[in-house]
Computed example of a mutant assay.
Amino acid sequence: MARSPEELGVTHGAGARRSLSALPPLLLLAGLLIGLFTPDEVRPLAFLATGMVSAAALLPLWGTVLAGVGGCAIYLGLMVHFEALTDGTAYSELATLAAIAGFAVFLNRLMDRRARQLVQVRSVAETAQLAVLHPVPRHVGHVTLECLYLAAAAEARIGGDLYEAVRTPQGVRLIIGDVRGKGLLAIEAAATLLSAFREAAHDTPDLPHLARRLETSIGRRAAQYPTVPGSEVAERFITALLAEIPEDEPVVRTLTCGHPPPLLLRQGEVRELRASAPSPPLNLGMLVSEEYHVDLAPFHPGDQLLLYTDGVTETRDRTGTFYPLAERVRAWSGESPHHLLNHLHRDLIAYSGGELDDDVAALVARRRPKL
Rank of each mutant, 00 (worst) to 15 (best):
V179I: 07
T227M: 03
H142P: 02
A99P: 00
S4W: 07
E6G: 10
D206K: 08
T11G: 08
M52G: 01
V53S: 07
V80N: 10
E314W: 08
R366W: 03
L162A: 10
R109Q: 12
V179R: 06
R367M: 05
R116V: 08
Q120K: 14
A186Y: 02
T315P: 13
I187C: 05
A49R: 05
F106P: 00
P298D: 08
A14M: 06
G258D: 11
P25R: 03
R346N: 13
H345C: 08
L97D: 10
V288N: 00
V121M: 12
A49W: 08
A196W: 05
A362S: 01
I187L: 14
M79V: 07
A128T: 12
V132F: 09
L185A: 06
R253L: 14
D40R: 13
A190F: 01
V228C: 01
E83V: 09
V140P: 02
H81V: 15
F322A: 11
Q304T: 10
V119C: 03
A223W: 00
M1A: 13
P369I: 01
A277K: 08
A16H: 08
E232D: 15
V228H: 03
G88W: 08
L66K: 00
R271T: 15
R366G: 01
A165W: 07
T256R: 14
G258E: 06
A234C: 04
F106V: 13
H139C: 02
A153W: 01
A190C: 02
A154R: 14
T192E: 12
G70Y: 03
Q129M: 13
L273W: 11
Y163Q: 04
E188L: 12
